[in-house]
Simulated assay, not measured.
Amino acid sequence: MSSETPETETAAERRPDEREQAGRSGLLSSLDPMAAYERRTTRIREEIARNRRGEYTVPTWVLSLALAGVLGIWILVLFVL
């Protein structure tokens, strides 16, 4: 399912433009609370859109913690109970 549509453009592809704009406007724009709010909401919307398309990933530490828990319970059942 790798159909390319304009909506599937990733944030990484748009970042160079954002960096150029931030560089042009200087330090004051990085401290502008409205600009920070807009960047944050844009990132959140992009992440939600990626997750809805099925592009989400589970962090490695969560997977390793789940594996350790399953193994711990398995050992507890086999050797203790």
Rank of each mutant, 00 (worst) to 15 (best):
S2N: 10
S2W: 09
S2E: 12
S2D: 13
S3D: 10
S3N: 07
S3P: 01
S3F: 10
S3Y: 04
E4N: 04
P6H: 06
P6D: 05
E7I: 02
T8S: 08
T8F: 07
T10L: 05
A11S: 14
A11K: 00
A11R: 01
A12G: 04
E13Y: 07
R14I: 03
R14A: 00
R15F: 13
P16N: 02
P16Y: 10
D17V: 09
D17T: 06
D17Q: 12
E18M: 09
R19D: 15
E20Q: 14
Q21W: 13
A22M: 15
G23Y: 15
G23F: 14
R24P: 00
L27G: 02
L27C: 02
L27A: 05
L27H: 07
L27P: 01
L28I: 11
L28M: 14
L28G: 01
S29L: 10
S29Y: 03
S29V: 15
S29N: 11
S30R: 15
S30H: 15
S30V: 13
S30W: 15
S30G: 15
L31M: 15
L31P: 01
D32T: 04
P33E: 00
P33N: 06
P33I: 01
M34A: 15
M34L: 12
M34E: 13
A36P: 01
A36V: 02
A36Y: 00
A36I: 04
Y37F: 13
Y37S: 06
Y37T: 12
E38W: 03
E38P: 01
R39G: 00
R39N: 04
T41I: 14
T41R: 09
T41K: 02
T42S: 10
T42P: 00
R43M: 08
I44M: 10
I44E: 08
I44H: 08
E46H: 05
E46N: 05
E46D: 13
E46K: 04
A49D: 05
A49Y: 00
A49T: 07
R50Q: 11
R52N: 05
R52Y: 08
R52I: 05
R53H: 12
R53E: 11
E55V: 04
E55P: 03
E55Q: 06
E55I: 03
Y56S: 11
Y56V: 02
T57C: 07
V58F: 02
P59C: 02
P59A: 01
T60D: 08
T60N: 09
T60P: 01
W61P: 00
V62M: 10
V62C: 05
S64C: 09
S64Q: 13
L65Q: 09
L65D: 13
L65Y: 04
A66V: 05
L67A: 14
G69R: 00
V70E: 02
L71F: 06
I73C: 09
W74Y: 12
I75C: 08
I75K: 03
L76I: 07
V77T: 11
V77R: 14
V77I: 15
V77W: 14
V77H: 09
V77G: 05
L78I: 12
F79N: 11
V80K: 10
V80I: 12
V80S: 06
V80Q: 10
L81I: 10
L81S: 11
